[in-house]
Write a protein that binds this DNA or RNA. Structure first.
Lengths: 346, 346
DNA sequence: TTGAAAGCGCTAACAG
DNA sequence: CTGTTAGCGCTTTCAA
């Protein structure tokens, strides 16, 4: 409820003119005398008039709002993306509605329907690790809802996408470990159903191949829920660390997996990096403060949110249907710290 | 826009009955035959009918949505609060709209007006470090918008509030440092305009008094923007560390200040805790992984969000005006780690 | 240049 | 039990 909100009617009756005149005066210069326009604007200002967005939305079918669906906001990468989204959205007069899936498919479906009920004009989404059936997204897209995917994209849906250069990031990561003298490099990654997993896996494998290191399947461990349950990470680590061919370094594919791995290694008494090197995809701003400081691949989260939102608003405001879509790839950055550099003295 | 959404009208004409009959059949059993009810429900299901929330809101003035205003979501404490809020809100059929102020007063005012336009039924807010004039909140509250404050509250506004036991938390923190042998304990805190600052300050001072340690004003440093600009933290630290009466421990009042302080100490070559002990109010889940691991006061963020939302929904759904308000105080917890324990061997 | 009137989708008072 | 009607606040033809 707009508490005792002043409406167009109130202004109209105070000024003794019609509601439609007020509406026109407020909404730009469409057939209205400068005099009434000025009068109306002053009166609106005086009473702190705010148009009722519900009524506006109901009237002309768009809400000037954007729906965001992310796995969780309690993650630096996604927080950074959201900051990027907000920056662009607000500057163009759009609101954002943020929802979290907590990596659950059912919540993705539920959130999506909430957002549609709220009549969002477009959608920015990074799917869950559980998302296999994309019917819900396909339907919306087919009906004409502008959607832009970021980070975890759905190849099958034909629309704009923004991703980090996961292949190159993983390639750089793995190459760096190799250059530091590691040879038995394991990779703990997320669900194999999401796009970033296979892109990063390919980068990892290519780097090994280019350095004449064989790919061992037992060095590749998946966490089907992206580490939502800590147990899946611990299982992967136990299998790796207590195997006869214990790896000498681990490349982890996501923030949650990275920090859980570091904690586990510390607790078990494995020295990082001397016993096991560690390198993660991570946007955590505390990477330099960890023990040991964490070598990581940084993804441009803020830019990703910015770019995705620009593309989405372009779609929303396009006068004619858009059939040509692009996938923007943003560069990643390697930050070298101590977790990947064996200390020769010790 | 609900893309080609089926409306009550569509169902009505398909079934050859009136729109109002459909509405009644859908909204519970208000004067309607079981037969038509069944018919309507089946038809609605078949066409995947979803009521248009904009129209509903416009009609009866409430939107089943809750507005959230926090300084930033890129902060573990607030993320945890939001998780608590969402849990309760969704289970009671409410949506949430999350907005960030980035510690800027102007954004607080702007977000608030956005939320009001979106006709939120109630508000959960933790104010910015810049917020002095609370006219915007007072006006809304006076007009009858249910508001519940959490964490950073406004004493002047008479409504429900949920806070952590900041006094006791700070008291425990300071006492712990004293027990560990520190005597020259500095306190770097946020803006003195927000509630948590003075509560924590009092706890710190009381602990000193109870241990017969004099309170030195030059040991108390404020960051007017809560550390939004890193410079204000660096200035505070420079003044402390290079003063003739350099403190032997620092108690920091917020996550951002804590991590910036740790980084700064590490960079300048001060050993924590041997040169300077450190203890922070922090919900960062990586505290145990920092170098050194961080002794901290943990606040029950999830519970705070949960409790605040329960109180808010009670206000929203109350049949009669509420005049009795309560302030709920949740306990904090001290986690002792290495940053506060001098290593006697080194 | 302005006003009157219709209508977005839904609900609720009032008839029948 | 069901249909008709009015109206939430706004925009937008159409007529004046």
């Amino acid at each position: 409820m707009n508490f005792e909100a002043v409406t167009i009617k109130d202004i109209a009756s105070e000024l003794g003119i019609s509601p439609s005149a007020v509406s026109r005066a407020l909404n730009g210069s469409y057939d209205i005398s400068a005099k009434t326009k000025k009068l109306v604007k002053e009166c609106a200002l005086k009473h702190n008039y705010q148009p009722n967005r519900m009524a506006q939305s109901l009237k002309h079918g768009f809400s000037k709002s954007i729906g965001i669906v992310v796995p969780t906001i309690d993650n630096s990468f996604f927080s950074q993306v959201i900051n990027g989204i907000e920056g662009v959205a607000y500057s163009k007069g759009y609101n954002v509605i943020i929802t979290q899936t907590h990596e659950r498919y059912e919540l993705e479906v539920l959130n999506l329907s909430h957002l549609i009920l709220r009549a969002v004009d477009g959608l920015l989404i990074s799917v869950t690790t559980e998302t296999q059936d994309i019917g819900h997204l396909k339907t919306l897209n087919d009906k004409g809802l502008p959607i832009v995917f970021f980070d975890r994209i759905c190849k099958e849906i034909n629309t704009h996408k923004v991703i980090a250069d996961n292949f190159t990031g993983a390639y750089k990561a793995t190459s760096h470990l190799i250059n530091e003298g590691f040879r038995k490099i394991a990779h703990i990654t997320s669900s194999d159903s999401i796009s970033i997993t296979s892109e990063r896996l390919k980068g990892y494998q290519q780097a090994l191949l280019d350095n004449n290191i064989a790919i061992y399947d037992q060095y590749i461990k998946y966490c089907p829920h992206g580490g939502r349950d800590i147990a899946e990470i611990e299982n992967a680590l136990n299998e790796l660390l207590y195997s006869p061919v214990k790896p000498d370094a681990i490349f982890t594919a996501s923030d949650r997996i990275t920090t859980a791995t570091l904690r586990f290694l510390n607790e078990l008494g494995f020295h990082v990096p001397n016993d096991v090197g560690l390198l993660g995809f991570s946007n955590n701003p505390l990477s330099d403060l960890l023990n040991p400081s964490l070598t990581s691949i940084y993804q441009p989260g803020y830019e990703m949110g910015k770019k995705a939102t620009e593309m989405l608003i372009a779609l929303i405001e396009s006068k004619r249907p858009v059939f040509e879509f692009e996938t923007v790839t943003l560069p990643t950055q390697l930050f070298i710290r101590k977790s990947s550099k064996v200390n020769k003295d010790s």
